[in-house]
Computed example of a mutant assay.
Amino acid sequence: MTPGAGAFVLVAEDDAKQAELVRRYLQREDHAVLVVSDGRAAIDQIRSRRPDLLILDVMMPELDGLDVLRVVRRDYDIPILMVTARSAADDKLAGFDLGADDYLTKPYDPRELMARVRSLLRRAQASGGSVVLPLRVGPLSLDQVRHEVRLDGRRVECTPAEFRLLETLMSSPGRVFSRRQLLDQAHGADSFVTDRTADAHVKNLRRKIEANPRKPVLLQTVYGVGYRITDGHQASDA
């Protein structure tokens, strides 16, 4: 999202009339809008398109809004505005505890919704700082804003953990990272995962980015130490 440009807003709302009303108000302010009607579809769209803002209804089929919030907050820091017909304080507290940025109770004035949307987008833009340029190493590029990895321009599908591991390696090309350093970035320092988890992530990534995963030239092993990413011209131990 650039200054003066509309945002990409994902609306997860199973009430068709309510969703259409929200869509119209958002489009009046030049936002691109995608509406989904269940929780699983919301998660799928966030993973594939990474919206600038999520408007999330609590009561939805497949997965309810709180379950969606729990899943999304593990991997993404996008602003999330919860909306619900339930006004109980416990519901609001649960939403905030799980990482919601704001909460609006139905029925609401659409103008209040838009005021909150503007506030959340301003805060997100202000905290974003300067433009983040994609990381590039040889034929690989990693866009931290769009959450995309590309190999020679072709998109590479990565899990969130694989993305974070690759992001760590590409932030310092040629540097050797230990398995534990990579796992801390991919899963968090308090996670209970073994070094074999790092090896599994590397194996999966090599299938996706190497011409010959058995003879890797980009994601290389440094025996007894860990892994590094190179442009393909540096000698490998593997």
Rank of each mutant, 00 (worst) to 15 (best):
D91I: 08
K92A: 15
F96R: 01
G99N: 11
D102K: 01
D102G: 07
Y103G: 10
L104A: 07
T105H: 11
Y108T: 10
L113I: 04
L113C: 04
M114A: 04
A115V: 15
A115K: 06
R116H: 05
L120H: 04
L121N: 06
Q125P: 03
G129C: 05
G129M: 03
V131R: 13
V131C: 05
P134D: 00
L135N: 02
G138L: 04
G138M: 12
S141F: 01
R146S: 14
R146Y: 12
R146F: 07
E148L: 15
E148V: 13
R150M: 13
R150G: 07
V156H: 07
V156Y: 09
E157F: 14
C158I: 02
T159H: 09
P160F: 06
R164L: 10
L166K: 06
L169I: 05
S171R: 04
G174N: 09
V176F: 07
V176K: 00
F177N: 02
F177V: 00
F177Y: 15
Q181S: 12
Q181D: 12
Q181Y: 03
L182T: 00
L183C: 08
Q185L: 15
A186L: 02
A186Y: 01
H187D: 05
A189W: 11
D190H: 12
S191N: 12
F192L: 14
F192G: 12
T194K: 12
R196N: 13
R196I: 14
R196S: 14
D199C: 10
A200K: 10
V202D: 00
K203G: 13
R206G: 04
R207N: 12
R207F: 09
I209A: 07
I209N: 06
I209F: 06
E210P: 05
N212T: 13
K215V: 15
K215Q: 15
K215F: 13
Q220T: 09
T221S: 10
R228V: 01
